[in-house]
Design a binder for these strands. Structure first.
Lengths: 109, 109
DNA sequence: AATATCTATCGTATTATTGCAATAAATAAA
DNA sequence: TTTATTTATTGCAATAATACGATAGATATT
């Protein structure tokens, strides 16, 4: 087994989980924080900022790109990675919805 | 090597990633949604709601408990699982901080 | 005491993730 | 054309995560 049973959950539950998974690594958090705050978005800059090998950074960027949080713009010989505003707003809304839910009163209270 | 290099990132970056990891599975999203909305919080109810084996549900509950999002209250012979308001608010704040950051204007715009 | 109920844990199989060296690919510069 | 620069990909090793049957543990019930 070792594989998530995605088919038994709703599309939304799977989407939330996928977005969360994209954020579930400190390197990817660092990448996002950098792209949110700094003007520089060139891949090489990120490799310098992060204490990881170039191949590893490239892989994390690929994952963030795959989920849609980032998009890459080729600017030879460099590649510029940026936050995809559309997906970012989607993630903001989806997490916002969960966290704004008032916690139900149940048997523990 | 298959192990995250946590020591090269800040405590906060690691904490965000850990919280995100806890949300990075549709079953755990379903558990949280259930506990947020329903009054029932007994482990057995969750096992009935989720299309997963009892052992698997118990394991997901353990992870959510470990990160602090849930706490379990033994009520023999049942166990009542509830959202830990403190950690929930921490997560809300931590994700809120990221998503409220205005996206920097960079070379892609 | 024996039985039933509920939950946690163990063991195991399978797949996913992380990390990096090496290398390829693509373009700019010489 | 040759070389340098930048990024992606491949291949590999090691660890983590997912899932579930089987079983153990704890408490109620009979």
């Amino acid at each position: 087994m070792g594989v998530t049973k995605t088919e038994v959950f709703t599309d939304k539950q799977n989407r939330i989980a996928d977005l969360a998974k994209a954020l579930a690594h400190p390197a990817r958090i660092a990448i996002i924080q950098h792209l949110l705050k700094e003007k520089s978005c060139v891949c090489g800059d990120l490799v310098e900022v992060l204490p990881l090998a170039q191949a590893t950074v490239s892989q994390h960027l690929k994952e963030l790109k795959q989920i849609g949080i980032l998009h890459g713009e080729i600017n030879p010989p460099r590649v510029c990675y940026c936050i995809n505003e559309t997906v970012w707003q989607e993630a903001k809304a989806i997490f916002g919805e969960i966290f704004e839910t008032e916690v139900a009163v149940n048997c523990c209270k």
